[in-house]
């Protein structure tokens, strides 16, 4: 089957935004109340620092991870 997938990680405009990726790969919506709670099957809750996430998201993704309708 010919690939018609958007090529991954070829630059900011083609990336899946990190928030979208984590939503899907971690199987949970990202909850913001000062910290992010991540729960994986079989692994205890861990906490991720919000500030670090925002800076890494802004640096790498911004809203440019999306593209508008063709």
């Amino acid at each position: 089957m010919a690939s018609s997938l958007a090529a991954p990680n070829q630059g900011p405009t083609d990336d899946i935004a990190l928030a979208d990726l984590l939503d899907r790969l971690l199987g949970t919506g990202i909850v913001l109340d000062g910290d992010i709670i991540i729960s994986l099957a079989g692994v205890d809750l861990v906490q991720v620092r919000l500030r670090a996430l925002i800076s890494s998201v802004r640096a790498g993704d911004a809203v440019g991870g999306e593209r508008g309708p063709a």
Binding site: G29, I30, L32, L53, I54, A62, V63
Partner: peptide, 11 residues
């Protein structure tokens, strides 16, 4: 899917 917080996405 759950709505994403604007602080995370920049929307």
């Amino acid at each position: 899917l759950p709505a994403q917080d604007a602080r995370l996405t920049g929307f």
